[in-house]
């Protein structure tokens, strides 16, 4: 199959589904759906996509968005699951709700990035093929208390927000710009909430792309 330019129509179909999910979330006081329940099959920890040449140029930035959003969703989801299993001591309900809610939105973002890839004839990113994945998993494994989970979430969402902001300036496809424009502020909101729960004073980075990943971080 010959890759073709991103299909705006195909993307908008996916965006519509995402908007529906947003509407449902906005109409409910419940936290968005969280990670798989305890006992569910574990998600893959290290996977790769299929075609090494699939992600080049502008497409690589979209693949980066998919991989990083997916990794954030998986890590925060596993943190929420571990909290439910008592791995991190007594985790306040507000922290568990935060982790589950943010994880669900990251997963939805990864799905949207992947829909953009497949609409353009590229394979979806499977797993989390990123150079930063092992270190972040080690940090989750080393977490012992709720504050460790919130610190990981604050740092991770900072990286995702910076990367998505960087993507805005690197892509020209209208669908990719639209998705990045809508995702970045939501991830920034995750970061602000984590900072509040940690008791950190509100701030905004003077350089909004500091710490951003580039496609060099992709391992596919």
């Amino acid at each position: 199959m010959t890759p073709r330019p991103f299909s705006r129509r195909g993307f908008l179909v996916g965006l519509g589904a995402l908007a529906g999910a947003a509407g449902l979330a906005a109409c409910s006081n419940e936290a968005p759906p969280g990670p798989p329940a305890p006992g569910a099959p574990p998600s893959p920890t290290t996977t790769t996509s299929t075609d090494p040449a699939a992600y080049e140029g502008e497409v690589a930035w979209v693949a980066l968005g998919a991989a990083l959003s997916g990794l954030a969703g998986d890590l925060l989801g596993q943190a929420a699951t571990g909290a439910g299993q008592g791995r991190f001591g007594a985790v306040p309900a507000v922290v568990s709700a935060y982790l589950s809610g943010a994880a669900a939105q990251h997963v939805a973002h990864a799905e949207a990035w992947n829909r953009l890839l497949t609409a353009g004839g590229r394979p979806a990113v499977t797993g989390y093929p990123l150079t930063v994945e092992p270190a972040l998993r080690e940090r989750l494994d080393a977490a012992r208390a709720p504050v460790d989970l919130l610190g990981l979430a604050a740092d991770l969402t900072g990286t995702v927000a910076a990367t998505v902001t960087r993507i805005v300036g690197e892509v020209t496809d209208a669908s990719a710009v639209t998705l990045a424009a809508g995702v970045g502020p939501v991830v920034a909101m995750h970061g602000a909430t984590a900072d509040f729960l940690l008791g950190r004073p509100p701030t905004a980075p003077t350089d909004p792309i500091a710490g951003a990943l580039t496609p060099d971080a992709l391992t596919v």
């Binding site: 309900a93 568990s96 935060y98 809610g101 502020p185 909101m189 602000a192």
Partner: peptide, 13 residues
């Protein structure tokens, strides 16, 4: 618990 999620009500801004 709602204080943990009320800050990000939308999947896309």
């Amino acid at each position: 618990p709602g204080a943990g999620t009320v800050g990000f009500p939308d999947v896309l801004f």
